[in-house]
Computed example of a mutant assay.
Amino acid sequence: MTIDARKTLVNGATALQATDIQHALANAAAGVSLRQVTKKYGPVTAVENVTLDIPAGSYCCLLGPSGCGKTTVLRMIAGHEEITSGDVLIGDRRVNNIPAAKRNTSMMFQSYALFPHMTVWQNIEFGLEMQNISAQERKARVGEMLELVGLSHLGDRKSSQLSGGQQQRIALARSLVTRPQVLMLDEPLSALDENLRVQMRTELRRIQKQFGMTFVQVTHHTEEAFSLSDRVVVMSQGRLDQVATPAEMFRLPASQFVAKFMGDNNIFQGKVLHCAPDPGTGMDVIELGVEGIGSLYSRGYAVPVGSMAACSIRPDLMQIEPYPNAASEKPTPRANHITARIVSIEMTGYVTRVVLMEEKTGKELLYKSPTTAWETGSYAEGQLVTLRWSEGNCVFLPH
């Protein structure tokens, strides 16, 4: 059957309409819950005591470095890995012992795993044939999926003849056509170049929002996770380190690991010297003694005096001033400021990155400025400057 004939069938009176497909996908969406899930490979613990709730219809990204356990979590949800202990639920159904093919989930693999000897149409239709869906409904669903990903004109082409972006779209269509309750994506954009990766993540988010499906994606790119997710899960050494919205995680990383993994944060380690309530915010102002630098002030919640901790300041929330100046000579109470020397200046486009070295300790620091603002100043490599920031922008990191 030609593409034109298939499209005629899709658009005919007996075909499923786009709204029907959309409603079916949205109604199929289910939440995912993990309860104290552990996975061991012999003596090695890959995932330890993970408890996590992913709401139905949300986009969740599992984020972390290689080997942190994020792909293992994804595969346990899909049923491609058996759990050692704990429970996995899809909706209200406990699926620990249910085979992957019967969990009503779908996996979009990093390699796309398309059949090179099949046409685009046959690749998308394959899963429906395995489900014994009628020929008429198969044609309607495949046609709608091709329309959805904008590749109706390529239905008769072999998948091996497609570009990387086109293969990614076909893999997505094949994953959606079976109407899974949960779609899992294992680093689906890693094989694409930067421009195409940005374009395709926009498409992924558009499709997820359009159909209200539950998407769970593995990635090690912070920017990708933040741009796609309703909720980000950061993992470290097989455990959950923080679960939050992208905005919450960006503003308030919960640990030194998260602050470092997000990149560019300036982190100072030291000992808690004092902790006092801040009535205006409901938080505490915490004084941290940093060796070689002195006291730095941040906001957080009550911690024992004498405990080791850290604080973090984003490079875009610092102010830079020539040194010396009046403010440097007479600092105000609770004012965070340090003296540093400019090592390098890198204009990256909209943003200029300035690498500095703290004058007493040699600690490397990063400052960021909009390029248009930076160009109004007259700073140069080798210049001594003052960096300052408020305790309200400085995040306390208890661990």
Results as ranks from 00 to 15, higher is better:
residue 168 Q to V: 03
residue 276 A to T: 12
residue 224 E to W: 10
residue 82 E to K: 13
residue 230 D to M: 11
residue 348 T to V: 12
residue 243 V to T: 11
residue 50 V to L: 05
residue 66 S to C: 10
residue 356 L to K: 04
residue 229 S to V: 09
residue 84 T to I: 01
residue 19 T to D: 14
residue 183 L to D: 02
residue 304 P to A: 13
residue 77 I to K: 01
residue 89 L to V: 04
residue 391 E to M: 15
residue 96 N to C: 06
residue 375 E to Y: 13
residue 346 E to T: 15
residue 20 D to V: 12
residue 33 S to A: 15
residue 141 R to N: 02
residue 338 I to P: 00
residue 310 A to D: 02
residue 84 T to G: 01
residue 233 V to N: 03
residue 305 V to F: 06
residue 249 M to E: 05
residue 256 Q to D: 09
residue 222 T to S: 11
residue 96 N to P: 06
residue 345 I to S: 04
residue 153 H to C: 01
residue 218 V to M: 06
residue 136 Q to Y: 07
residue 247 A to H: 14
residue 30 A to S: 14
residue 121 W to A: 11
residue 322 P to T: 14
residue 300 G to S: 09
residue 160 S to M: 07
residue 351 V to S: 06
residue 373 A to K: 15
residue 224 E to Q: 11
residue 16 L to K: 08
residue 225 A to T: 08
residue 192 L to I: 05
residue 49 N to M: 10
residue 243 V to I: 15
residue 133 I to T: 14
residue 307 S to P: 01
residue 159 S to K: 00
residue 354 V to R: 00
residue 359 E to V: 15
residue 293 I to G: 03
residue 2 T to S: 15
residue 212 G to Q: 05
residue 13 A to I: 13
residue 393 N to F: 14
residue 62 L to D: 01
residue 355 V to S: 13
residue 319 Q to L: 13
residue 93 R to I: 12
residue 173 A to G: 04
residue 337 H to A: 14
residue 149 V to R: 00
residue 294 G to S: 06
residue 192 L to T: 01
residue 192 L to Q: 00
residue 155 G to S: 06
residue 380 A to M: 13
residue 309 A to E: 05
residue 14 T to G: 07
residue 233 V to C: 10
residue 330 K to R: 12
residue 267 I to H: 02
residue 199 Q to S: 11
residue 390 S to H: 13
residue 162 L to Q: 03
residue 376 T to W: 13
residue 378 S to C: 14
residue 203 E to V: 04
residue 77 I to W: 03
residue 197 R to W: 02
residue 147 E to D: 12
residue 2 T to I: 08
residue 167 Q to S: 04
residue 396 F to I: 10
residue 31 G to E: 07
residue 300 G to W: 01
residue 169 R to E: 01
residue 260 K to G: 08
residue 74 L to T: 02
residue 110 Q to V: 07
residue 80 H to K: 02
residue 315 P to A: 04
residue 242 Q to P: 09
residue 296 L to K: 03
residue 104 N to R: 10
residue 167 Q to D: 04
residue 241 D to Y: 08
residue 3 I to T: 14
residue 332 T to G: 08
residue 103 R to G: 01
residue 358 E to H: 10
residue 56 A to T: 09
residue 18 A to M: 05
residue 114 L to M: 03
residue 140 A to C: 09
residue 391 E to D: 12
residue 22 Q to M: 12
